[in-house]
Nucleic acid binder design. Structure first.
Length: 675
DNA sequence: ACACCCGTAAACACTG
DNA sequence: ACAGTGTTTACGGGTG
């Protein structure tokens, strides 16, 4: 009761207007984004980080593409030689799995999902086993990557320490900031790729008839291989050469070698964007052969495990693997389908990559030009389109709503199922249903933006309660808006539009929305011509809860001491991520946490920086292991802003495909299916 | 046990 | 009077 505004509680006017006052004049631009002071850090470090990040990104893509190619080749080969008819054919109908369900079985499967699957009896025991194996193998992989990440972090820490002593000028600070942004972009790409990899693996569970597209594979046939891919391919191949030059081929992800060319990477991205259109693609060329010749780097074989999507079979030697490859992954419907899926995955990645590159290009152009005023990037970009970063403006349609998303069925949300630490625990099946508050603790707050965006489709169609707090949702809605401000009614609409769940219980949640708007200082009411709109005060939002930065204490420390990026930057990232449908921070379900962690690490820097006033014992856990166990990584937020508990989903995925952007749903009170 | 956060419900005030 | 908006309080559940 004794809230700060309590003094004026008698009339709501003054109280709210007080808050609004600070914002009113300058409209949204007046929001606190002052802290642009960036502590010193040498550009060298940035370079290093960039290179590393880029390398990771390339590696990932390389793997992806290799995988795809490998599959393609396999298919070709087998088509040519053994035309043994796929005997799987007969079984397949019975194994058909509804996409909506199959998509719900990523590496981390919630018990609920599992149960669903079981209930539907669409998966054979073998398939389940495969599932489990997959999970285990992935865990393994993740561990390895984890190790790598640790190393990486240590190194980073070292660098940071060194660089701290070298004072630099503001110019460099700016550069640094923008470079960091650049890195973020790269991270996004990585994560996206991981994500799609995951997707693919999920698909591996499916048995899909080639002719019949239960899956929306149609887009596959459309022109893939945009110019971006070519460029990337080129880069990838170059990279490979680099790698093979200086060491054993099997360290797929060795970023730790700091001796990389200094300039090229960043510039490459910046400059090549417009160039590589003419660049001819020669993917069939030597690169694949190389890989096939050297056992270690066979794209479908790594760490003794068959990397064919959905496989994970373990082999002691390469020969047996080859045997397996020829036997198990011969040309049949399943392989074909998987290959297609892989193609699609790659295609999507390319699209996304293209988008991100474009964005990046715009960012860099913008920052180089240094024009303070927002104007579209002068650079003609050969790619997708529309995303002009310069003005944070109207992507309303583009961001979440028009992703090249494949599945149109509500698939299981990708992120929020972090509860399943990759292990299926059948006894925790029940608590899938439940109100929002059935969330995980704040500590597991998840970045909502990426998550929501990522699972937009799912939430839009499945009447599943999004595992986010109202505050986070509101914020997301506001941030997604072109003007970063919404009226109450628009917020309502956003809720109903984005979440099937909120098409019910209007009275309840609307009240909650209003309640939250009023309650949280992070929501600022701004008087407008046409009434009042609500905006988000990011600072307040972040202040709202103590953030627990986990991860490498060293890194955290460094972050806290050596960085200081303004919230504006962070907000920009947020928005950027959201627009792009990219799970910036992680996403639990995504395969290798390493990349995520890496991204998180960098992100952490941002957060730590902008949150460095925060104290709050954020890093108060010096005793913590630098990197919590994998499953923790998946869940640990690292993000000060929107964390909400993941979870509580996947109940009755009651799709309503016919639904289309309804507006208000003030009806239906009585039911209480979820509450 | 406690504090905190969140969701829910509801009362109330203000405004058009 | 009414609906929509906004504020506030109260309460219970979950979590650390």
């Amino acid at each position: 009761m004794m809230q700060e505004s309590g003094i004026e509680a008698t009339s709501n006017g003054p109280a709210s207007q007080n808050r609004a006052a600070s914002v009113e004049d300058g409209s949204r631009d007046a929001r606190p984004k002052s802290a642009t002071s960036v502590d010193v850090m040498a550009a060298d470090l940035i370079h290093l980080q960039q290179q590393q990040a880029l390398q990771v990104a390339r590696q990932i893509l390389l793997q992806q593409q290799q995988q795809q190619q490998q599959q393609q080749q396999q298919l070709q080969l087998q088509q040519g030689t053994d035309l043994k008819s796929p005997k799987d054919n007969e079984n397949q109908p019975s194994l058909q799995v509804p996409v909506s369900v199959a998509m719900m079985t990523p590496q981390v499967i919630t018990p609920q999902q599992m149960q669903q699957i079981l209930q539907q009896q669409v998966l054979s025991p073998q398939q389940l086993q495969v599932l489990l194996q997959q999970q285990q193998a992935l865990m393994l992989q993740q561990q390895q990557l984890q190790e790598f990440y640790k190393k990486q972090q240590e190194q980073l820490h070292l660098q940071l320490l060194q660089q701290q002593h070298a004072g630099k000028q503001s110019k460099e600070q700016q550069q640094q900031a923008q470079q960091l942004a650049f890195q973020q972009q790269l991270m996004q790409v990585q994560q996206l790729q991981q994500q799609h990899l995951l997707n693919l693996q999920r698909q591996g569970l499916l048995t899909i008839q080639p002719g019949q597209t239960a899956l929306p594979l149609h887009s596959l046939t459309q022109g893939i291989n945009p110019a971006e891919l070519q460029q990337l391919w080129k880069e990838v191949t170059n990279l490979k050469e680099e790698n093979s030059n200086n060491s054993n081929g099997r360290r797929g992800l060795d970023l730790s070698s700091p001796q990389l060319p200094k300039k090229p990477l960043l510039n490459q991205h910046a400059s090549t964007n417009g160039q590589y259109m003419s660049h001819s693609l020669k993917r069939e060329g030597s690169t694949l052969d190389d890989y096939q010749h050297s056992h270690h780097s066979h794209p479908l074989y790594g760490h003794g495990v068959c990397k064919w999507p959905g496989c994970e079979a373990v082999f002691e030697d390469f020969q047996s693997f080859l045997k397996h490859l020829n036997n198990e992954h011969a040309l049949d419907d399943r392989s074909t389908a998987q290959c297609r899926v892989q193609m699609q995955v790659v295609q999507q990645l390319e699209l996304q990559l293209a988008k991100d590159k474009e964005r990046l290009q715009a960012m860099m152009t913008h920052l180089h030009v240094k024009s303070t005023e927002p104007k579209p990037t002068p650079q003609p970009l050969n790619l997708v389109s529309s995303v002009t970063l310069s003005k944070t403006a109207p992507h309303e349609a583009s961001p979440p709503l028009s992703l090249p998303q494949t599945p149109t069925t509500p698939t299981a949300p990708l992120t929020p199922l972090s509860q399943a630490h990759s292990v299926i625990t059948p006894n925790s099946i029940h608590h899938s249903v439940g109100p929002m508050r059935r969330r995980y603790s704040d500590k597991y707050n998840m970045p909502i933006s990426p998550d929501i965006v990522q699972n937009k489709e799912f939430y839009m169609n499945a009447e599943v309660r999004p595992p986010f707090t109202y505050a986070s949702l509101i914020r997301q809605g506001i941030l997604e808006s072109p003007e970063k401000q919404l009226t109450l009614n628009e917020i309502y609409n956003w809720f109903t539009r984005m979440f099937a769940y909120f098409r019910r219980n209007a009275a309840t949640w609307k009240n909650a929305v209003r309640h939250n708007l009023s309650l949280h200082k992070c929501f600022v009411r701004v008087e407008n011509v046409k009434g009042a709109v609500w905006t988000v005060d990011e600072l307040e939002f972040q202040k709202r809860r103590p953030q627990k930065i986990t991860g490498s204490p060293a890194l955290v420390k460094n972050i806290q001491t050596s960085l200081g990026y303004g919230p504006a930057l962070s907000a920009a990232f947020q928005a950027s991520m959201a627009e792009n449908n990219i799970p910036l921070y992680t996403t639990a379900s995504i395969g290798s946490p390493t990349l995520n962690s890496l991204a998180n690490a960098i992100r952490e820097e941002m957060i730590g920086a902008m949150d460095h006033g925060n104290s709050n014992g954020s890093d108060s856990s010096p005793g913590r292991s630098p990197l919590p166990a994998m499953h923790h990584i998946k869940e640990e937020p690292l993000d000060p802003e929107d964390h909400e508990g993941p979870l509580s989903l996947v109940t009755t995925a009651n799709h309503s495909p016919d639904f289309d952007h309804h507006r208000d749903y003030d009806d239906d009170q009585g039911h209480d299916d979820m509450l």
